[in-house]
Design a protein around this nucleic acid. Structure first.
Lengths: 240, 240
DNA sequence: CGCGCGGTTGAAATCCTTCAAATCCTGTGG
DNA sequence: CCACAGGATTTGAAGGATTTCAACCGCGCG
């Protein structure tokens, strides 16, 4: 089959098990293909959607890397997550029919556009899809609980260690190394996500390097001692 | 009608518009009553559910006040939210069929138990219910974005001010005063939610009192200058 | 080749936490 | 009904972690 003419469809997408339910029969699988309206390419640095825009669709990331961020009136903003291939963005828009955050591509990306009314329609018929949608939303809620725990109770080193472990774990699930990664975001964006200033992120990286836990060359990071990172995350530095 | 024998049903629940869709016809409304299996009373200080327990149901709070919290292996924990009448708890359990946080009653409470498989079943038939479930989950995601913003980028005073405003706004939507509230949680629980130590919470309250912004008597709080609180929240204390 | 953004590092300042002690409240048992 | 115990809250003083301000480095791009 000529890959250039290969049908754009979930049924032959290698990321399917990441963004679609797994237990589908052939007929259901075929119907699922109807969910994806089109694919859309997003250039690095440009938005997939912005705060305030009407909500129409969820987006499954095919390639590339995104950040989502919320902002206050007074100009502060907070990165709420980094998303990679197989993950779903746009859930924030459902409640008010408008997006409440920005989604920006950190590298050239491609997403599958899934109109939400079509998702709702199909998931009334395909139980597995319905349940899948629920799980995806619940997963996002649980993920955010984790971030709240991190932001609310961890010190800088713990936050960065948790961040690196989370990132490499997700990359590994996608076939990449379990100990090497290329950061697609700046120190400032990492800092925003972790509730730290960019200088603190940089210093904490340096500290890890000194201790021989990681190797850092710009955006390229190698985790030399994953157990040490894990120990840092659940250290609970109490001295008594 | 004798209130003691009044049927336990959404159709005659005064909180209906808070936890159920509004645009239902009579027949649908009647079917919705099937969603609530039973009501359950929870004594102050006892759990509605705990981390690790199998997930079966969502819970709509009828009366009372809850906190939800997540914990790490090393014993740290983080309050992820405070919930009051009309709000839904349990969404965290959907993704893995097990709860991933604790829900504790902060005062004697009563909840409507809504088995999730029944919710899924009915929402395949009643579009409004389906959409409502999606909105509730999306709303929770958006709420958590707000908490992340608070935890990641606000100083102590801003956090407490935002907390008080949020609480009083939700209480007001339930018919309570727009400027007076009784805290159902300890300073420590507030601190956990806001990523602060209890002493910091206490000190910040004292500061607000000194400045004449609020009046505090133990758990009883009166907001004297709501605009000042709002100004504190979006102050973005930069000096240049 | 130089500009500029992203990153690193140092020193001082700030905010929050920690530790400690006193006080206030609440619920319980006599 | 009162006394008491224990938890909750407040407040002070000292310490620590992160931020702020500032300077410098270095890689990539025009």
């Amino acid at each position: 089959m000529n890959p250039l003419t290969m049908k754009v469809a979930c049924s032959n997408c290698n990321l399917r098990e990441l963004c679609m339910p797994v237990d589908l029969n052939a007929q259901e699988l075929q119907r699922i293909d109807e969910v994806v309206a089109v694919r859309r390419k997003i250039r690095r640095g440009t938005p997939l959607f912005r705060n305030g825009e009407p909500f129409t669709s969820l987006y499954a990331i095919r390639t590339g890397f995104f950040k989502t961020c919320v902002a206050t009136e007074d100009g502060r903003d907070q990165v709420t997550g980094f998303q990679m291939a197989g993950e779903i963005i746009g859930l924030d828009g459902i409640v008010n029919d408008h997006h409440t955050c920005d989604a920006l591509a950190l590298e050239d990306a491609e997403v599958c556009v899934m109109p939400f009314d079509r998702i709702e329609e199909l998931s009334r018929e395909i139980t597995a899809l319905q349940h899948h949608v629920h799980k995806i939303m619940s997963r996002e809620i649980v993920r955010e609980h984790g971030v709240m725990l991190l932001l609310g109770s961890m010190r800088a080193e713990e936050r960065l260690a948790a961040f690196l472990l989370n990132l490499v774990q997700r990359l590994h699930a996608r076939g990449f190394s379990r100990s090497e990664l290329v950061l697609r975001m700046t120190r400032e964006e990492i800092g925003s996500y972790l509730g730290l200033k960019l200088e603190t992120v940089s210093r904490t990286f340096s500290k890890f390097v000194e201790e021989g836990i990681v190797e850092v060359n710009q955006r390229h990071v190698r985790l030399l001692d994953i157990d040490a990172l894990k120990r840092i995350v659940n250290s609970q530095q109490t001295c008594h």
